[in-house]
Design a protein around this nucleic acid. Structure first.
Length: 594
RNA sequence: GACUAUGUAGCUCAACUGGAUAGAGCACCUCACUACGGAUGAGGAGGUUGAGGGUUCGAAUCCUUCCAUGGUCGCCA
């Protein structure tokens, strides 16, 4: 049993023995004792006073005495006002270090012990490359997937590729007009960047045409609807929907360029998916399902034939699900996608959508609609909503060229990692590929940690100069301490030192590290139930800081006697392994050297 | 305007969900150390937690009224 639960249960029976009143264990709030006070865990006794009919400090004292006398690890106590500070038997912690903390997979639960969850993230448009916003999205979704897995869920990672619509047609038109047959192979340009280039070219040509029309006397609003290149894009969309062979061929070709480009970026990012869904496949399913819903009477139809859902009973509005002309809107295809997924995975307990907070209303509606269609999982579905990534100069705007490209940013981080590593000179003897691997791990750790340490729901500032910092509260700082710890363990192994189970008792300055290590399982389950990796990121930093400080004050291999040395080695081993678990759940891979 | 989130040190972020003197990093100042990996550690300074009112043993956290900022309020996606 975890120490907090154990203490609660001891407190509960001790309280009943003292005051003759039974309180459920969860009424006893156990927290870590602040370091300016003696003790390991604290029970706040103010709320207990009205049940004990005694003053808070008297209640605390009597409860403390009873807990010391009870069977269990409580060895002593002190009372400050109504705070009961408990001292835990050091042997308890020693035993814990040698048993639970030593287990393979400490902190995680076996996959399949909790329900099957689908996590969607990334979900890009196919008309432009991935940028900084996608990085936050991908790192979040990927990390939450791993955290849910560690909490025992079976997890399926998916994305919905927004591969159809006017945006991709614009790139197609521009490519046909200006492309002269250019391909990723012929130009050496990455596929997603190439298609993005034509999307920009379209926009430029469009604006020029509008300007010409305005020059010729057309009002601006009309000009923006009449520009020939826009009409051509709309015609292309019509042809695509009719299945026109040439159009569909070009669409397939250009999308395939984008996918190849995205694949490269995802691989560099270190994220992956179990299955891809494509809007071009799901929007028709959505139409069918909406029509079925109409037949079953959960939706209604207006005179022009449009289909609506009435959510006024849920405090929202009426919402359009299908246009009068039978064409799909965004909601239509999202309904189709959701239902297809439930059909593909009948054991699915819920879906988690990693999508920016500007779509909160959309997902409220979607989940309500799924509920109306009779899916009990709907109420467990979750919109993992996250805030925008802002730059010091404001929002990213493609028109102003302030979009931070994902590939460029990652490459920049790798370069900084390389420069620092060369200066430190710790990678001599590694070949090129192995060194590159280290640079990527270090650089990615900086980016991922920077983006994940902030509460997802908050907007965050991406200050380029601060974000590339490798000192302080950063990913590389955590990696650095992991590498130091591993280096010691390697050295111990080389010297044939195998820590015995006869380890020294813990001193006060070791307790902070031990307490933090002990907290890992709780942090993981808390992160999982709130879909919040930042809790885990902060834990990784806290435990690393504790180790770094401990490392400074104590020579691990140079300890006075074997019992102390073995304790320190055990601590180092538990630290590196727990940290590796935590960082893995953030999607961060750790190097052995750096 | 309505709805919704956010507002904490100069800056970027925490705060175990109502608990003790609100903590880290960066920047600034001081100190330690030829270190099992210095991409280090210790200390100092820096706060009326946007403002006012309320709830109670106790509030950054809950309620309320304002203020500021972002987002949403399409037969766009």
């Amino acid at each position: 049993m975890r120490i907090d639960n154990l203490l609660q249960s001891i407190a509960s029976s001790a309280f009943e023995a003292c005051f003759g009143q039974a309180l459920p264990a969860d009424q006893f709030s156990v927290q870590m004792t602040r370091k300016e006070f003696a003790g390991d865990r604290t029970i706040v006794c103010f709320p207990l006073a009205r049940h004990s009919k005694a003053a808070p400090d008297a209640t605390a004292t009597r409860l403390g005495e009873a807990m010391v006398n009870a069977e269990g690890p409580v060895e002593g106590f002190n009372v400050v006002k109504g705070f009961l500070n408990l001292e835990i038997d050091k042997a308890y912690w020693t035993q814990w270090l040698l048993t639970e903390a030593a287990e393979e997979g400490y902190g995680t639960r076996p996959v399949g012990s909790a329900p099957h969850v689908m996590v969607e993230y990334s979900s890009p448009n196919t008309n432009k490359p991935l940028h900084l916003g996608h990085l936050r999205n991908n790192f979040l979704g990927h990390s939450v997937s791993r955290i849910l897995e560690a909490a025992g869920h079976k997890v399926t990672k998916v994305q919905i590729v927004n591969d159809r619509g006017i945006h991709i047609c614009k790139s197609m038109v521009a490519w046909r007009k200006f492309g002269e047959g250019e391909t990723p192979e012929s130009s050496g340009v990455k596929g997603d960047k190439l298609v993005g280039k034509y999307y920009v070219a379209f926009d430029k040509a469009f604006k020029a045409e509008v300007a010409d029309l305005v020059e010729a006397g057309t009002p601006k609003e009309d000009a923006e609807k009449q520009a020939p290149i826009l009409l051509e894009a709309q015609e292309t969309l019509r042809l695509w929907e009719q299945g026109d062979t040439d159009t569909v061929e070009l669409w397939k070709t250009m999308n395939s360029w984008v996918y190849a480009g995205f694949d490269t970026t995802y691989r560099t990012m270190g994220v992956e998916f179990d299955q891809l869904y494509f809007e071009s496949d799901t929007y028709l399913i959505g139409k069918e399902r909406v029509l079925e819903g109409l037949e079953r009477g959960v939706f209604s139809q207006s005179e022009d034939g449009a289909i609506w859902v009435d959510l006024t009973g849920d405090g929202l509005d009426r919402k359009l699900l299908l246009r009068g002309d039978g064409t799909a809107v965004y909601m239509t295809q999202d309904i189709g996608t959701a239902l297809l997924r439930f059909q593909d995975y009948p054991d699915l307990d819920r879906q988690v959508y990693t999508v920016g907070n500007e779509q909160e209303y959309h997902f409220k509606v979607l989940f309500l609609v799924l509920g109306k269609l009779g899916f009990p999982q709907a109420e467990r579905c979750h919109h993992l909503s996250y805030g925008m990534v802002e730059l010091p100069e404001g929002k990213m705007k493609s028109r102003e060229g302030t979009v931070v490209d994902a590939d460029d940013l990652m490459e920049e981080m790798f370069g900084i990692a390389r420069d620092i590593a060369r200066e430190a000179g710790k990678l001599e003897g590694l070949d090129e590929a192995a060194q590159r691997d280290v640079f990527e791990r270090v650089g990615l750790s900086a980016l991922k940690y920077f983006l994940l340490k902030v509460d997802p729901k908050k907007n965050m500032m991406f200050d380029p100069t601060a974000s590339i910092d490798f000192y302080g509260n950063t990913g590389p700082f955590i990696l650095f301490n992991y590498v130091r710890g591993r280096s010691i363990l390697r050295k111990a192994a080389q010297e044939g030192i195998e820590p015995s189970t006869d380890i020294a008792s813990l001193e006060a300055d070791e307790m902070e590290l031990v307490s933090l290590l002990h907290g890992l399982p709780d942090v993981i389950s808390e992160s999982a139930s709130t879909y919040n990796p930042s809790l885990l990121a902060n834990w990784c930093y806290d435990v690393t800081k504790a180790f770094s400080s401990y490392y400074q004050d104590h020579s691990i291999l140079g300890a006075d006697d074997a019992a102390n040395r073995d304790l320190r080695l055990v601590l180092t081993e538990r630290f590196t392994r727990s940290l590796r678990t935590g960082m893995h759940l953030l999607g961060i891979a750790l190097p052995e050297r750096m």
